[in-house]
Amino acid sequence: MPHDHHDHDHPHTLLPPDPALRVKALETILTEKGLIHPAALDAIIDTYEHKIGPRNGARVVARAWSDPEFLQALRDNATKILDEMGYSGRQGEHMVVVENTAQTHNMVVCTLCSCYPWPLLGIPPGWYKSDAYRARAVREPRAVLADFGVALPEGTAVRVWDSTAEIRYLVLPMRPEGSEGLGEEALMELVTRDSMIGTGLAQAPV
């Protein structure tokens, strides 16, 4: 390996892992061909690291809890109303909002890869992409929920939604008790990322 032969008197820059070098290689080649612009890549990373995240989804949930007309619009055509809010699926997917009730708890997975509502929740957490979650969410959803510390009443059914490249789901968690009278901003604080994937519940106000 070339790494073994370098001069230790002049330490070189730390060699990135092999996949990082392969990504750089693709970037260099595609940039030289004029097919991509490094500034556009930076803008995409900045957007996902700083501008898009679960706050977007929390805003949608808080508004659905507060505004019956908005809730109805979400039920009728979530893609359209979310698009109007600026939360468009960049990959052209449709959005479906699934409502938790006392009878049914919804949970979202992507068994094949990791389809996820990026515009509403940002980049999925590591566990969402893991084989363990992807396999177990469908097979034993209650056990998975227990791992997340969620215990549902006996009578509540669990429904698991498998995302695809075309359809992404957002769970509308149940509005927590004691949140009556709170405004949208205060309600948003109760809405966790996991509650919108269905592996958590909305938090009760303190």
């Binding site: 995409i44 690291e49 490249a165």
Partner: peptide, 29 residues
């Protein structure tokens, strides 16, 4: 959001190529 810088670069590269119309997202998935 991304555990390693190259994860972010790779993600952005793929999204950028898709948005530039080089492939359809369902094909990617």
């Amino acid at each position: 959001v991304f555990e390693a810088p190259w994860h972010a670069q790779l993600f952005a590269l793929t999204v950028h190529l898709n948005e530039a119309g080089h492939f359809h997202w369902p094909d990617w998935a």
